[in-house]
Design a binder for these strands. Structure first.
Length: 1035
RNA sequence: GGGCGCUUAGCUCAGCUGGCUAGAGCACUGCCCUUACAUGGCAGGUGUCACAGGUUCGAAUCCUGUAGCGCUCACCA
């Protein structure tokens, strides 16, 4: 056996690229339907191509990688599908922002030109993202990488849309949508974020037509009054009767509008309104009704047959070109104003006209675009909807839920029992509720987006005079799907939806007779919802050479994602997968991971520049360190705070930055930081620009004042752990360098030494624990179990204990080799790089196998088998015995530590019979670990004058030869402290045991344990008191 | 306003179905550069488990309430 030498410490950057190259050339992450093993698949939540991956992605992908690597090692046919999402609005808006910086707009280009520009952005970030995934060690099936606008995904989108259209689950409707005036598109409910803003309630007087007075309406949005078509009053309002039949002359516009009675209108408290309803405190009892600019007014308008007058353009400026025809000369002055300017101008007008009754400040939440961050305009427009309220979709999603996680009874849910019912489980379970409640209150899903970047809606339309319209079925007979509706002007509007296969033939034919394809694209989530199907070739796997993929890898094992995705994505995948695949689930488990926040509990965001770039952590700490710490941070109940440090560009030291509070109350790094470290090179006090300073533009980096990157010292623990494993392996390899097996296939050894039996038992328990935690998606205990076993058990105890013996003990060498091999395997999913590097030298060592520890060889750690230690290795007696050894060692070290005995000094232990038995049981471990030269039976020889007594498990022990002279005073103090402590503890135990209720009701073994502990504590007390007496005689 | 969480050591967090003297990492103190590792070793101090009630022989753990924080859904009269 040749000597194996490793560098003194592990250098991630030196090894990571070659490890990646080895995995890549072994092609070991590629899975195919014909591979052996039970299928186990995970679909990556495709990251948006808007930006590089952040720490949240790193967390989610690390956890997925842990799962997929373990599955692969268990011999399953493991497939992790990677890819990216085109993220319609988000990507289009970042590109538009970039153009705006050059003074250009989207409309300066043709649709094709603009899409090409977005495509460039996409290409850049897609490759960045895929490279990042690779760098962090994600074992994705790289060859299957998808993008949501790939032809294979597009084919699925086309098919899904066509089928839903054909089945009547897609409809066209004029409704109030959430309109984003910046991106000028409709967005879905869940793309709207509520933000608290300080606004005002304006009380406006509307004169009655007959001149008999006025009514006062209350509004927060006076600018919409131009579109009012009624005033509402509650029929129970005492004033209602007197106003019945009267009409109002709308100021400015001079429109005559009716007063309608509707229960929806909230009455003021003074007139009997419910004070619990916040609105009643501000209500005047009269509601201005603006059907085109308020969803509730729209509904009210429908109930009363009111017209809807849209007074705004798509950019939310006041406009007479989108449905407003009765523009009075007075109103003309407001046309063209922005909604903000119009609000001011209209209030001013009312004031001048004496019609402004009052203004009250009012704090309320207003919907803002999640991308644009401007207030959403409720806007009347024609959009495409998926009728997710249909039982075939929403109820199907509810039926998918595990009955045990369902809140209430599932029995009332419509539909016949189907494959997949009840098969969907959430981890942690409480998130099932989010899923359930979302579907119980679900609303139709607006899927059209007025964007250029995305899947174009495959519908062609044209209006006809009812008399000349083509007969129904004209196009469905040719394989298309059609729909028609009558417009208010009596015209008939025909919609023809084409499957992809008819694009070449029917599309030109439709165009030839004046049909036009819908200009809009689909909501991004429409294609995301199909991700677990589209990436596997649905609906036509043969076309993309993916035979067998869909049936092998769908359903996937688990979807790992963040909370807010439950409604945005999980729901839609469940509904679509079940709808198109006859009830089949897209995944069996949904795992919701925690959110990484900064040290002040704030979300990490670009604007606060409080994020940490995974690439920076990989560069400074290594991918393994990042992965380990992220795994350790993944707790089930709490989001986790990651204090963000600044990496000083001068010293490369990290430090906690000085912070400031922004005017909206965010805590951020001060724009300019100064170097706090003095390395004697004059760096102390040198200035640098923080990430926040750069992002906010409040400080500009220069050569003298460079940009400092964010980092976090939390990742140090991972780096240290990798180094520890590296050095432990290095040591073990040195011990095993001389190992020579007795034959080519030596018989399995059965260890007898306590330390060996103990470490094997601990290993078996560690593996059990890890298996159990993984099954529940509890990652923090996995990391802790690894850390405890490797660092505490293996390094601190086992390696130290076997140092004197291992070189000459082939059985012990076999154990050491076996456990180290096992460690590399169980560590591999979390720390794949360092384990892969160590795998080569460790697997080159030949020793006999250990009975019960089967570890089949493998060229790579990545393809090795997950250990399945035999139950016989879990030796409870070995663990008990070794724990006694540990207690004894700790007691002796404690004495040494207090006296500051040099580690190299060997001492003499004087102990009674029971303790001598423990020492003997340890087989030398006590002597090695506690630095003992000689053990003597207490009383066998006269007690040495320098002996120091200390209690241990009810016995009195002595240590001698500790120091050259005893400090009696210090000794007395120590013993007195021990006595005080023991008395306190004894009091606690006696209290319990003198409690009749405790004796009567507590479990017998608990009582017995208490008695035992009391006995030991009492004996310790006696021993300490006796030692104190002995000490007194010495003075 | 509805729902879901959280509050344990200076910091970041574990503590499952109530029962060892409440733990880990970091930070801190002392000693040690002992031939795997100073990105290290040994030892050590540190907590009215947010607060108030209740259930129980026994509560960090279960129940109720209060306060603070976070997320989420709804609400833009």
């Amino acid at each position: 056996m040749s000597e194996i030498t490793l560098a003194k410490s592990y250098s991630p950057s030196e090894h990571e690229p070659s490890v990646l190259a080895r995995w890549s050339s072994a092609n070991c992450f590629h899975a195919s339907p014909t591979d052996s093993g039970e299928p186990y698949s995970i679909f990556i939540p495709p990251p948006n191509v808007t930006a590089a991956l952040h720490l949240g992605h790193a967390l989610n992908n690390t956890l997925q990688d842990v799962l997929i690597r373990v599955a692969r090692m268990r011999g399953m046919n493991a497939m992790w599908m990677p890819g990216t999402d085109h993220a319609g609005i988000a990507t289009q808006s970042v590109v538009e922002k970039r153009l705006a910086a050059q003074g250009k707009r989207r409309t300066d280009f043709s649709r094709e030109e603009f899409v090409a520009k977005v495509q460039e952005w996409k290409d850049e970030y897609e490759s960045t993202i895929l490279a990042q995934l690779k760098e962090m060690g994600a074992s994705c099936d790289e060859k299957r990488t998808r993008f949501t606008m790939d032809p294979v995904c597009t084919a699925a989108v086309r098919e899904a849309f066509f089928l839903l259209f054909q089945d009547g689950l897609i409809e066209r409707g004029k409704r109030i949508v959430n309109w984003d005036p910046v991106s000028q598109t409709a967005i879905a409910d869940d793309e709207v974020e509520m933000e608290e803003v300080d606004g005002f309630f304006y009380y406006l007087r509307y004169p009655l037509e007959d001149g008999s007075g006025h009514v006062t309406v209350a509004t927060t949005r006076p600018e919409t009054m131009l579109g009012d078509t009624a005033v509402g009053v509650n029929p129970r309002d005492p004033r209602a009767a007197g106003l019945r039949g009267k009409r109002v002359r709308l100021p400015i516009v001079d429109r005559i509008i009716p007063i309608v009675e509707d229960d929806y209108v909230v009455m003021p408290v003074a007139l009997g309104g419910d004070p619990a309803d916040g609105k009643s405190l501000f209500a005047s009892g009269f509601l201005k009704v603006t059907p085109a600019h308020d969803p509730n007014d729209w509904e009210l308008g429908r109930r009363h047959g009111l017209p809807a007058i849209n007074v705004m353009a798509p950019d939310a400026s006041m406009s007479d070109r989108h449905g407003w025809t009765d523009v009075s000369p007075a109103a003309q002055a407001f046309v063209g104003l922005s909604r903000e300017a119009a609000r001011i101008a209209i209030v001013e007008w009312f004031k001048k006209a004496g019609l402004l009754e009052s203004v009250k400040p009012y704090r309320h939440s207003v919907g803002h675009g999640s991308r644009s961050h401007v207030p959403i305009e409720p806007y009347l427009s024609d959009q495409w909807y998926v009728r997710v309220t249909d039982a075939r979709l929403s109820t199907s999603a509810l039926r998918a839920m595990d009955p045990a996680q369902f809140d209430g009874s599932r029995s009332g849910l419509a539909g016949e029992a189907r494959d997949g019912d009840g098969g969907l489980k959430f981890f942690p379970t409480r998130y099932a509720k989010t899923f359930q409640h979302w579907h119980e209150g679900i609303r139709d899903w607006c899927i059209s987006r007025q964007l250029w970047w995305g899947h174009r809606i495959p519908v062609w339309s044209k209006s006809f005079d009812a008399a000349t319209a083509p007969a129904a079925g004209t196009w469905s007979a040719q394989g298309a799907a059609e729909m028609r509706r009558t417009l208010p002007d009596g015209q008939l509007e025909l919609f023809v939806c084409l499957p992809e296969s008819l694009d070449a033939t029917l599309a030109p034919a439709l165009a030839a007779i004046g049909f036009v394809q819908d200009a809009d694209v689909l909501d991004t989530w429409f294609s995301s919802a199909l991700w677990p199907m589209s990436t596997l070739g649905w609906p036509n796997s043969g076309r993309f050479e993916m035979d067998g993929m869909l049936d092998t890898f769908n359903p996937s094992a688990v979807l790992s994602t963040a909370r807010e995705i439950i409604t945005l994505w999980v729901s839609r995948m469940v509904m679509f997968n079940r709808y198109f695949l006859n009830g089949r689930l897209p995944f069996r488990h949904v795992f919701i991971h925690c959110i990484v926040q900064d040290g002040f509990g704030q979300k990490m965001s670009k604007s606060l520049a409080n994020g940490v770039d995974p690439r920076d952590i990989i560069a400074t700490h290594g991918a393994d360190a990042m992965r380990f710490v992220l795994t350790q941070m993944s707790t089930a109940t709490q989001d986790v705070r990651l204090p963000v440090d600044v990496l000083c560009p001068f010293t490369q030291e990290s430090f906690a930055p000085k912070t400031i509070t922004t005017d909206v109350g965010h805590v951020v790094a001060a724009p300019v930081q100064s170097c706090p470290t003095d390395l004697g090179r004059g760096d102390l006090g040198r200035k640098m620009v923080s990430a926040y300073g750069y992002a906010s533009g409040s400080a500009v980096p220069t050569a003298d004042m460079p940009l400092a990157r964010n980092t976090s010292s939390r990742f140090d623990a991972g780096r240290n752990f990798a180094t520890k494993l590296w050095n432990a392996s290095r040591f073990a390899l040195a011990q095993l360098g001389t190992a020579t097996p007795s034959s080519d296939s030596p018989p399995a050894v059965v260890p007898v030494a306590l330390a060996d039996r103990w470490i094997l038992a601990r290993f078996a328990r560690a593996v059990d624990g890890i298996n159990g935690s993984l099954a529940e998606y509890q990652f923090n205990p996995v990391a802790d179990a690894l850390y405890d076993f490797v660092w505490r058990d293996f390094c601190d105890w086992y390696l130290e204990a076997i140092k004197p013996t291992v070189k000459n003990d082939p059985v012990q060498q076999a154990v050491l080799r076996g456990v180290l091999d096992g460690i590399l395997r169980i560590m591999h999913p979390v720390m794949p790089f360092v384990t892969e590097v160590l795998w080569t030298p460790v697997s080159a060592i030949a020793t006999a196998p250990v009975r019960g520890l089967e570890l089949p060889t493998s060229p790579l750690a990545a393809t090795s088998r997950w250990p399945t230690p035999d139950a016989s290795l879990n030796d409870a007696r070995a663990i008990e015995s070794f724990e006694r050894v540990q207690s004894l060692v700790i007691a002796i070290r404690n004495v040494r530590g207090e006296r500051q005995v040099n580690d190299r000094r060997k001492i003499v232990l004087h102990a009674p019979k029971e303790v001598l038995a423990i020492v003997a049981e340890g087989g030398g471990a006590v002597e090695t670990l506690a630095g003992i030269d000689r053990v003597e039976a207490i009383g066998a020889s006269p007690r040495p004058a320098d002996a120091v007594a200390f209690p241990f498990m009810g016995s009195e022990l002595c240590a001698s030869a500790l120091v050259d002279a005893v400090d009696v005073g210090a000794e007395r103090k120590r013993l007195e402290q021990t006595i005080v402590d023991r008395v306190r503890v004894i009091g606690g135990f006696e209290g319990k045991l003198s409690n009749a209720g405790y004796l009567a009701k507590a479990r017998p073994e608990v009582i017995e344990q208490t008695r035992q502990m009391l006995g030991e504590a009492q004996a310790d007390l006696v021993a300490a008191r006796r030692a104190l007496d002995v000490l007194s005689t010495m003075v």
